[in-house]
Amino acid sequence: NITYDSTPEDVKTWLQSKGFNPVTVNSLGVLNGAQLFSLNKDELRTVCPEGARVYSQIT
């Protein structure tokens, strides 16, 4: 699982392990844990089509 202390590499690995598509992995894999957790559902949806699914995994 990812935490606020996760590195971008951790986030990328976590996204891949959850089966998100490469677009999602590449879009969000540049963020660290704190940055990812700071995004709300609408912001995640704006960044990638699977944003709502990512949001449900981190809340």
Results as ranks from 00 to 15, higher is better:
1 N>F: 06
1 N>K: 13
1 N>C: 15
1 N>G: 07
1 N>Y: 09
1 N>M: 10
2 I>K: 01
3 T>L: 04
3 T>Q: 07
3 T>G: 10
3 T>E: 05
3 T>D: 14
3 T>K: 09
3 T>W: 08
4 Y>F: 14
4 Y>I: 15
4 Y>D: 10
4 Y>L: 06
4 Y>M: 10
5 D>S: 12
5 D>Q: 12
5 D>P: 01
5 D>A: 14
5 D>T: 11
5 D>F: 07
6 S>Y: 01
6 S>R: 00
6 S>Q: 00
6 S>C: 02
6 S>I: 00
6 S>K: 01
6 S>E: 01
7 T>K: 10
7 T>F: 04
7 T>Q: 10
8 P>M: 06
8 P>G: 04
8 P>A: 14
8 P>T: 10
8 P>R: 10
9 E>R: 10
9 E>K: 09
10 D>E: 15
10 D>W: 01
10 D>L: 06
10 D>K: 08
10 D>Q: 12
10 D>V: 06
11 V>F: 01
11 V>C: 07
11 V>H: 00
11 V>D: 00
11 V>W: 01
11 V>T: 04
11 V>P: 01
11 V>Q: 02
11 V>L: 03
12 K>Q: 10
12 K>V: 09
12 K>G: 07
12 K>H: 07
12 K>A: 11
12 K>R: 12
13 T>W: 07
13 T>H: 11
13 T>Q: 14
13 T>K: 15
14 W>S: 03
14 W>V: 04
14 W>L: 03
14 W>Q: 04
14 W>M: 04
14 W>G: 03
14 W>Y: 08
14 W>N: 04
14 W>A: 04
15 L>K: 02
15 L>G: 01
15 L>R: 00
15 L>A: 04
15 L>M: 05
15 L>C: 03
15 L>V: 03
16 Q>D: 10
16 Q>K: 13
16 Q>S: 11
16 Q>W: 08
17 S>L: 13
17 S>K: 14
17 S>T: 09
17 S>I: 05
17 S>D: 11
17 S>G: 12
17 S>A: 14
18 K>A: 11
18 K>Q: 15
18 K>W: 07
18 K>D: 06
18 K>M: 14
18 K>G: 09
19 G>P: 00
19 G>T: 03
19 G>Y: 02
19 G>K: 09
19 G>S: 07
19 G>Q: 10
19 G>N: 15
19 G>R: 07
20 F>L: 02
20 F>R: 01
20 F>V: 05
21 N>W: 02
21 N>M: 11
21 N>K: 14
21 N>Y: 11
21 N>G: 11
21 N>H: 01
21 N>T: 06
21 N>Q: 15
21 N>V: 05
22 P>R: 13
22 P>W: 08
22 P>Y: 11
22 P>K: 14
22 P>I: 08
22 P>D: 14
22 P>F: 09
23 V>E: 15
23 V>S: 07
23 V>N: 10
23 V>D: 14
23 V>C: 09
23 V>H: 15
23 V>M: 13
24 T>A: 03
24 T>L: 03
24 T>H: 03
25 V>M: 08
25 V>C: 14
25 V>Q: 13
25 V>E: 04
25 V>D: 05
26 N>D: 12
26 N>Q: 11
26 N>W: 05
27 S>A: 13
27 S>Q: 12
27 S>R: 11
27 S>T: 13
27 S>N: 08
27 S>D: 02
27 S>P: 01
28 L>Q: 03
28 L>V: 11
28 L>M: 03
28 L>W: 00
28 L>Y: 00
29 G>R: 05
29 G>Y: 06
29 G>L: 00
29 G>Q: 04
30 V>E: 14
30 V>A: 11
30 V>H: 15
31 L>D: 01
31 L>M: 15
31 L>P: 02
31 L>V: 02
31 L>C: 06
31 L>G: 03
32 N>R: 07
32 N>F: 04
32 N>S: 15
32 N>D: 14
32 N>V: 00
32 N>E: 04
32 N>G: 09
32 N>Q: 05
33 G>M: 02
33 G>N: 02
33 G>K: 02
33 G>R: 01
33 G>P: 01
33 G>Y: 00
34 A>M: 12
34 A>K: 15
34 A>S: 14
34 A>E: 14
34 A>T: 10
34 A>L: 11
34 A>G: 09
34 A>Q: 12
35 Q>D: 11
35 Q>P: 00
35 Q>M: 08
35 Q>L: 03
35 Q>H: 06
35 Q>K: 10
35 Q>Y: 00
35 Q>T: 09
35 Q>C: 06
35 Q>W: 00
36 L>S: 01
36 L>P: 02
36 L>K: 03
36 L>H: 03
36 L>F: 05
37 F>H: 10
37 F>K: 10
37 F>Y: 09
37 F>G: 05
37 F>Q: 07
37 F>V: 07
37 F>W: 06
37 F>D: 03
37 F>P: 04
38 S>H: 07
38 S>D: 09
38 S>M: 13
38 S>P: 08
38 S>Q: 13
38 S>E: 15
38 S>F: 04
38 S>K: 15
38 S>N: 14
38 S>V: 04
38 S>Y: 00
39 L>N: 04
39 L>Q: 08
39 L>K: 14
39 L>V: 05
39 L>H: 04
41 K>S: 10
41 K>Q: 13
41 K>T: 05
41 K>D: 10
41 K>E: 14
41 K>P: 14
41 K>W: 10
41 K>I: 15
42 D>M: 08
42 D>L: 08
42 D>K: 15
43 E>I: 08
43 E>S: 11
43 E>R: 12
43 E>M: 06
43 E>C: 05
43 E>P: 01
44 L>F: 11
44 L>I: 11
44 L>S: 03
44 L>E: 03
44 L>W: 07
45 R>M: 04
45 R>I: 12
45 R>N: 15
45 R>L: 09
45 R>Q: 13
45 R>W: 10
45 R>E: 15
46 T>Q: 08
46 T>F: 08
47 V>I: 15
47 V>A: 15
48 C>L: 06
48 C>Y: 05
48 C>Q: 04
48 C>G: 05
48 C>I: 06
48 C>H: 06
48 C>F: 03
48 C>M: 02
49 P>V: 09
49 P>T: 07
49 P>K: 07
50 E>H: 01
50 E>R: 01
50 E>L: 00
51 G>V: 03
51 G>P: 06
51 G>W: 05
51 G>E: 01
51 G>I: 01
51 G>S: 06
51 G>K: 02
52 A>W: 06
52 A>L: 13
52 A>Q: 11
53 R>T: 09
53 R>F: 06
53 R>C: 09
53 R>W: 09
53 R>I: 10
53 R>S: 13
53 R>M: 13
53 R>E: 13
54 V>T: 03
54 V>Y: 01
54 V>A: 05
54 V>G: 03
54 V>M: 03
54 V>S: 04
54 V>P: 03
54 V>Q: 03
54 V>K: 02
55 Y>F: 10
55 Y>C: 07
55 Y>H: 09
55 Y>S: 08
55 Y>K: 06
55 Y>E: 11
55 Y>M: 08
55 Y>I: 09
56 S>R: 14
56 S>C: 08
56 S>G: 12
56 S>Y: 11
56 S>T: 11
56 S>P: 05
56 S>H: 12
57 Q>S: 13
57 Q>C: 12
57 Q>L: 13
57 Q>A: 15
57 Q>G: 07
57 Q>K: 11
57 Q>E: 15
57 Q>W: 10
58 I>N: 04
58 I>E: 02
58 I>L: 15
58 I>D: 02
58 I>F: 04
58 I>G: 04
58 I>R: 06
59 T>Q: 09
59 T>H: 12
59 T>S: 15
59 T>R: 08
